[in-house]
Each structure stands twice: as structure tokens, then as C-alpha cells.
């Protein structure tokens, strides 16, 4: 006998798989909902910028301050920009961005679509000659897939700036020396895998949020649940994807 929990998990995974397949089936056929895509890009991308920037700035600052004592112990204080830039670009900025987006976008999409489902807005769209899957799901998933990488690039920049300030709290690293060291250390194999994986993060956040909202059960309780589980599952998925991304880039020798 298969345990009930496992059965439910597998059924859910299968449903998400079918939902994803439906996305690929429908998203790239006309009609294209460009205006709605732009609207979602505005909400998902532009509106998240402030939150992502603040988080990234703080992470950059904190990581730099926290890394310093260890480096000082080795007498390698001059390596601070190098070490910080690698950890920020490769891991911290993309993952923090994805997590913030999972929290903000995932719950937003989950709650919005959930309440649309509950109040029959999705049905209303359908009878208004609109494919709600294209109009609501495809645009949101695409917007999340496209905006999260851009947010991650900005988070990279802002967190490095935080790192610059952090390096200057106890020591003195000039503006040009800092950036010189950063770009001397970074290679394409640091930047490309970290940006490529954010596309997957964005896609996962969008798909999970939409799936949970679109399949929300009736009632206001259902809306809350779908928002909540959208955040939980997409955050978890971000880490799983990150693990996969690291393994794959490791296999491909992007070290």
C-alpha cells in the first residue's frame, strides 16, 4: 500500500506537471496577451524592485561584515571584495531574490487567482471570449520568468554596493579598487549559471503560484490556503532548483 501522504504528493506533482505541460501547450500560440504581460511585468518586476533592492543591499552589507573576521584571521583581509563578490553573485543574490519573489509574487499570484476563481472572475473571462489560461496564467508565468532574472541582476549590483560599504566600515577599500577586484575575480562561469538559474526560479514561482490559485477551492479559506501553499512550495522549489543548478554547473565544469 502506498501511504496516503505520498499518494497525495504524487498526485499533486502530477497535476503540477500537467499544468506546466498545458502552459507550454498554450502560452506560445496566438493570441498573445501582450498588454496583460506588460501589466504583469510591471507588478512582478517593477513593483518588487524596492523590496529586492533593500534585501540585497542588506545581504551584501551583512555578508561582508560577517566574512571579515575570518579573513582577518588568515591575514587575507585584502581578499574581502573577492570572496564577497563570488558568494554574492553565485549564490546569495539570486537565491535571496528568488525567495523574496516567492514570498511576494508567489503569494500575490496565488491569492489573486484564488480569489478570482472563487468569485467566478475566471469563468467571467472565459465567457467574455478570453482564454483565462492564456490571459491569466501564461502572462504571469512569463512575466515571472522574465522579471526575476532582471531583479536578480539588479540585486547583484545592489548587493555588491552593499558589500563595498561593508568593506569600508572597518577598513578602507577605494571605490575603484573594490570594483577592480570584483571584476578581476568574477568570470563568466560565475555569472552565467547564476543568471540562468534565476529564469528557472522565476518560472517555478510563476507556475506554482498560478497552479495553486487556479485550482483554489471555494471560499475565502481556500484563497488563504492557496496563497500560503504557493509560497511554501515555490520557496522549497527554489532551493531544490538551486541544488540542481549547482550540480549541473558543477558537472559542466563551471566552477
Amino acid at each position: 500500500m502506498v501511504p496516503k501522504g505520498l499518494k497525495r504528493f504524487l498526485a499533486e506533482a502530477g497535476e503540477i506537471g500537467r499544468f506546466t505541460a498545458r502552459f507550454f501547450n498554450e502560452a506560445f500560440k496566438p493570441r498573445y496577451e501582450i498588454q496583460e504581460l506588460l501589466r504583469q511585468c510591471y507588478f512582478i518586476g517593477y513593483n518588487s524592485l524596492g523590496l529586492v533592492a533593500v534585501t540585497a543591499f542588506i545581504m551584501g552589507l551583512v555578508i561582508t561584515i560577517q566574512s571579515r573576521p575570518t579573513l582577518v584571521e588568515f591575514g587575507a583581509e585584502a581578499w574581502l571584495p573577492k570572496m564577497v563578490s563570488v558568494s554574492l553573485i553565485r549564490e546569495i543574490a539570486p537565491v535571496i531574490t528568488a525567495l523574496i519573489c516567492a514570498g511576494k509574487i508567489g503569494s500575490g499570484i496565488g491569492a489573486e487567482l484564488g480569489s478570482m476563481k472563487v468569485t467566478e472572475q475566471i469563468d467571467a473571462m472565459e465567457v467574455s471570449g478570453t482564454n483565462p489560461f492564456k490571459y491569466l496564467i501564461a502572462t504571469r508565468v512569463m512575466a515571472a520568468t522574465l522579471m526575476v532574472p532582471i531583479l536578480a541582476v539588479m540585486a547583484d549590483a545592489v548587493s555588491l554596493y552593499g558589500g563595498y560599504l561593508g568593506a569600508n566600515i572597518h577598513g578602507v577599500v577605494s571605490w575603484s579598487l573594490f570594483w577592480n577586484q570584483v571584476f578581476e575575480t568574477l568570470t563568466y562561469s560565475d555569472i552565467f549559471p547564476s543568471i540562468v538559474k534565476t529564469f528557472f526560479f522565476g518560472f517555478a514561482i510563476g507556475i506554482i503560484g498560478c497552479y495553486k490559485g487556479y485550482n483554489s477551492s471555494k471560499g475565502t479559506e481556500g484563497v488563504g490556503q492557496s496563497a500560503n501553499s504557493a509560497v511554501v512550495i515555490s520557496s522549497l522549489l527554489v532551493f531544490v532548483l538551486d541544488l540542481l543548478a549547482v550540480q549541473i554547473s558543477d558537472l559542466m565544469n563551471f566552477t
Binding site: 511585468c41 518586476g45 517593477y46 524592485l49 532582471i150 531583479l151 541582476v153 539588479m154 547583484d156 571584476f183
Partner: peptide, 15 residues
């Protein structure tokens, strides 16, 4: 949105 996308892309290209 345009500004956002363009500045993000420019940052990426600059890096």
C-alpha cells in the same frame, strides 16, 4: 517596465 528591463539588461551587459 521598459526602463526597468532596459536598465537590468544594461547592467547585465556591463557586468
Amino acid at each position: 517596465v521598459g526602463l526597468f528591463v532596459i536598465s537590468g539588461t544594461l547592467l547585465f551587459i556591463l557586468a
